[in-house]
Amino acid sequence: MKISDLLKPNALVADLKAKDKNALLEELTDALARVEKGLDRKLVVDVLKERERLGSTGIGDGVAIPHGKLKNIDHLMLSFGRSRDGIDFDAMDGRPAHLFFLLIAPEDSVGVHLKTLARISKLLKNPQVRERLVQAADGGEIYRIIVDEENNL
């Protein structure tokens, strides 16, 4: 499953307004709800907060991949956000996160959920890709970078 197959341009936030983890989870859930009609916002945010209580999804190098699983959905859902200022996400390296992929998976998914997390991690492992995403002018450019770089994986 390709990231570009899951991420719709309308679920991308080029300039996040959030200043903390909880606000970020809400803002990216709202972005997801723009393309996933009928999504239960409160349930999604609660699932994400519960996952964060287990351990931060801030993986370091300015990246966080908040994720969770929901009953009653039948496909993966993805949104993306960028914070130029950065948000403290309790990352392993202690630095703020600037790039966020929010992934919601069906409760019974295992393989495809993990493969998608791994694909996102692989994409953002490259420091040049991270820098290009942070410096991109707008959401359209961010989306093009993700598509182009994913084709190089």
Rank of each mutant, 00 (worst) to 15 (best):
M1N: 14
K2M: 13
I3F: 05
D5E: 15
K8V: 11
N10C: 11
L16N: 02
A18P: 13
K19Y: 03
K19F: 07
K21S: 07
K21A: 11
A23C: 08
A23E: 15
A23D: 14
L24S: 02
E27M: 07
L28W: 05
D30M: 05
D30C: 08
D30S: 04
A31W: 04
L32D: 05
L32W: 00
R34Y: 01
E36R: 00
G38H: 03
L39F: 00
K42G: 08
K42S: 10
L43W: 00
V44S: 06
D46F: 09
V47I: 15
V47W: 01
L48I: 11
E50D: 15
E52V: 12
R53Q: 15
R53M: 15
R53F: 13
L54H: 13
G55V: 07
S56F: 12
I59L: 15
D61G: 14
G62P: 13
A64K: 00
A64S: 02
I65R: 07
I65S: 01
P66G: 00
P66H: 00
P66C: 02
H67N: 07
G68A: 04
L70T: 07
L70E: 05
I73C: 03
H75G: 09
H75M: 12
H75A: 12
L76M: 06
L78I: 08
S79R: 01
D85R: 13
G86F: 01
F89Q: 09
A91Q: 06
D93F: 03
G94C: 05
P96F: 08
P96R: 03
A97M: 09
F100I: 09
F100H: 02
F100L: 06
F101H: 01
L103G: 04
D108I: 13
G111T: 15
V112A: 12
L114I: 12
L114M: 14
K115Y: 13
K115G: 12
T116C: 11
T116I: 10
T116A: 06
A118M: 11
A118K: 09
A118Q: 04
A118E: 03
R119D: 10
R119E: 12
R119P: 06
K122S: 13
N126S: 08
N126R: 08
V129H: 02
V129R: 05
Q135C: 05
A136T: 04
A136M: 09
A137S: 13
D138V: 03
D138F: 11
I142Q: 02
Y143W: 11
I146K: 01
I146Q: 03
D148M: 10
D148Q: 14
E149F: 04
N152R: 15
N152I: 13
